[in-house]
Amino acid sequence: MKKIFPIALISLLVAVAVFGAGCTSSTSGSTLQLAGSTSVQPDAQALAQAYMANNSGVTVNVAGGGTAAGITAVGTGTAQIGTASANLTASEMAQYPNLRPYPICVDGIAIIVNPQNTAVTNLTLTQVMNIYTGNITNWNQVGGSNVKINVVNREQGSGTRDGIQKIVLKGGNFSTGGITQSSTGAVKSYVAGDPNSIGYIATNALDTSVKAININNVAPTYANLADGTYVIERYLLYVTNGPPTGLAASFLNYTLSSAGQAILKAQGEVSLNDVPGYVPPTTTTTTTTATTTTTATTT
């Protein structure tokens, strides 16, 4: 028990030191802080590296934490830009009414199964919905062999899960029958190991360890994501608190420039320039109307 005292003291000191360091770096003028979605994190890191190479003396930090954490960070001023893989929720807008989302690219979500599952190559959106709501529980109901479907989910609050819930489940609830894995990598490695499983990950994380399913006979290819025929897709967003200024505005403009979009494309995302008919928003207006409903606000 006595050993705890020095350990506690040291952790206190470390905490103070880290906290202090955090304060100084965020007040420095040449530092831009991003935080939020882990889906956006690798994209934003690639953009930040290129941006820093072009602008010496500027530091761009990209933190993860999840979409919700990113919204909180930008709402409270801890970060200048929050990154999000889901639209702002009503409660978030109520809490931070000045938040402005800016789409930076299109990101698809692939429905994945184990490569050994050769019988199933295509599912309709309705079938995927029924699998995730628990109405379909056996692979033979969708043309596969007679085994139980092992449904793999992401955790509550994950942007990818939100995307599936919005696009596939139309806002309905997931069945509680599945398991929950805490990251894209964990979902992928689980599905890669279980022949009877089904999961979902961002399309840019796809590799040969898992097999992507066609949805309504459309494969999650770049072209299909760009023209919208592959339907499980969403915009990835930067979120600022009020109109972006200074470094934040500069970094947003760089992200939307052809150089920035090329980097995103290299990261496996769909460039906004390749989306037919996409009109980039001007940086002074928001694309989403803030709702004033308070049904899900904090109490």
Partner: peptide, 14 residues
């Protein structure tokens, strides 16, 4: 707690 704390806001966090 570990799984959801990163995302939780408002009532969820509480």
């Amino acid at each position: 707690i570990a799984l959801e704390m990163g995302y939780a806001t408002g009532a969820h966090q509480q």
